[in-house]
Write a protein that binds this DNA or RNA. Structure first.
Length: 465
RNA sequence: UCCCGGGUAGCUCAGCCGGCAGAGCGGGUGGCUGUUAACCACCAUGUCGGGGGUUCGAAUCCCUCCCCGGGAGCCA
């Protein structure tokens, strides 16, 4: 029997279904269980963490099609929604019709009804979103992405689209990917090497490592802005916390100082934790149960508790009096190592901490010089397990102070006159931060490897699809 | 890039002081009147990562290359 009924999503059936209603669902078979005279299918359509239980009696015409309803098969099922008499689910569907869209041969379909390691699933990136784990992660990722916009839009921030292809190579935020249409077999050369004046843009171009500098000129006109888009780093980093292509969120506020910046960062982080609990509780519950590296209570605590604030100088003092043996030296003027950050978050502060006022030598040139002449108005948010998740600062708005820092840091002045113009004309205090979106998703889902929180991870020697 | 650990059945792994290649899960077949990663019985799994060497004989010892994971650095 052909039906004109549109499919209902499992999420909606489970939340607003009524017993007795006729429904059609489409999805992928997770498991099939059979007894004499009756069979059960757990159907998942990606809309929810939970599966919908389909019940097929021997008397139903659909019973004949059961042999093709293997794990992974895509099907359409029609029947009557009922309250389930058994434990484990509120509803189930008494099925009258099944249509098979696509089979999944059990002998060769890689995902069978057993646990798979994350390492194995990484090798089948196109199929892993069909698992409970990756379904949960990618739905949480979506909840967070929506919450990012909701947070900023609710505060009157303007979403600005800074370029993916950039001519700025001065930020020193990392190694850049070059974008070129030159013939790689025989590129044009001049005395300095490859002649990029003959390239597509007439000069060397890169994939962006940060939208911050562009966001600054938009903040100095639109007021409060934020970017949320892809970012690229060509570093040869092989860790569980780095990607070559990742998404970054960079708010920038005019007429704001470092305190406003910290307040925004903390508010942002805590609001997002709350949003995930509100919209993704079953996803977090699943991840908590299987990986025990995140939890509903931990996220609740994060959303409610204030962050600890500590200056770099105080942090160094804490580390110096630690009884713990560190591999790297602790000394005022040296950057904090992973082990030091972990000690601060796990032992000293027991949660997220904002470290401020770093020595100018270890921070970027655009950060505002403090009155002591030694430190800059920088702030890093460190969280347990991940380390640095947010890096921000008040920007140097004074022309002379900025050019002096640029000279000291060896930043070339060509190409950045536009950046200096912002200090020449109507300059004002402003501040912002950058947050790696995948690190946020990683922290909130508790996934150990950052390659497991983005659908198509890019890393050195790693590119698929 | 550096330091560790690993690569044996579709998956997870044992076997590694040289001597017939194994288990669990998954898969197939049959059974079972409501299951929850169902259960019970039986059946089949193979380039032991690639190449070279030592040896009568190598999954096992040696060399080399490739790949994967963890940690570190760089950073978000």
């Amino acid at each position: 029997m052909e039906t004109t009924m549109k499919r209902l999503k499992v999420k909606n059936i489970l939340s607003d279904g009524n017993a007795g209603q006729a429904i059609t669902v489409c999805g992928w078979v997770r498991t099939r269980r059979e007894s004499r005279g009756i069979a059960f299918i757990a159907l998942n359509d990606g809309s929810a963490q939970d599966t919908l239980q389909l019940v097929i009696a021997e008397t139903s015409p659909a019973f004949q099609k059961l042999t093709r309803c293997n794990t992974g098969a895509a099907i359409k099922a029609t029947g009557i929604l009922k309250e389930s008499p058994a434990q484990g689910q509120k509803f189930e569907v008494e099925i009258s019709e099944i249509e098979i869209f696509g089979d999944a041969d059990p002998a060769s379909y890689p995902l069978q009804k057993k646990g798979h390691t994350l390492e194995f699933l990484r090798e089948i990136g196109h199929l892993r979103p069909r698992t409970n784990t990756f379904g949960a992660v990618f739905r949480v990722r979506n909840i967070l992405a929506e919450a990012v916009h909701e947070f900023f839009q609710g505060r009157g921030f303007v979403w600005v689209h800074t370029p993916v292809i950039t001519a700025s190579d001065c930020e020193g935020a990392g190694d850049l990917f070059t974008v070129t249409t030159l013939d790689l077999e025989k590129p044009p050369r001049d005395n300095n090497g490859i002649d990029f004046s003959q390239d597509f843009f007439g000069k060397r171009a890169y994939l962006t490592v940060s939208g911050q500098l562009e966001a600054e000129f938009l903040a100095m006109s639109l007021g409060d802005v934020y970017t949320f888009g892809p970012t690229f780093r060509a570093e040869n980093s092989n860790t569980t916390r780095h990607l070559s292509e990742f998404w970054m969120i960079e708010p920038e506020m005019a007429f704001a100082d470092i305190r406003d910046d910290m307040e925004l960062a903390e508010n942002f982080f805590r609001t997002l934790c709350g949003k995930v609990l509100e919209k993704g509780e079953s996803e977090i519950a699943f991840l908590e149960k299987f990986y025990k590296n995140t939890s509903i209570s931990e996220l609740k605590n994060l959303s409610e508790k204030s962050f600890v604030h500590i200056t770099y100088t105080e942090a160094v003092k804490e580390l110096e009096k630690a009884t713990e043996k560190f591999e790297f030296p602790v000394k005022w003027g040296l950057d904090l190592q992973s082990e030091h950050e972990r000690y601060l978050t796990d032992k000293v502060c027991k949660g997220p901490v904002i470290v401020t006022d770093y020595p100018k030598e270890i921070k970027a040139f655009y950060m505002r010089m403090n009155d002591d002449g030694k430190t800059v108005a920088a702030m890093d948010v460190l969280v347990p397990k991940i380390g640095e998740i947010i890096g921000g600062s008040q920007r140097e708005e004074r022309l002379e102070a900025l050019t002096e820092r640029m000279s000291q840091s060896g930043i070339p002045f060509e190409n950045v006159e536009w950046y200096l113009d912002l200090r020449r004309f109507g300059s004002a205090p402003h501040a912002g931060f950058g947050l790696g979106f995948e690190r946020l998703v990683q922290y909130i889902t508790g996934m150990h490897n950052i390659r497991d929180v983005i659908p198509c991870p890019r890393a050195p020697q790693t590119i698929k699809f």
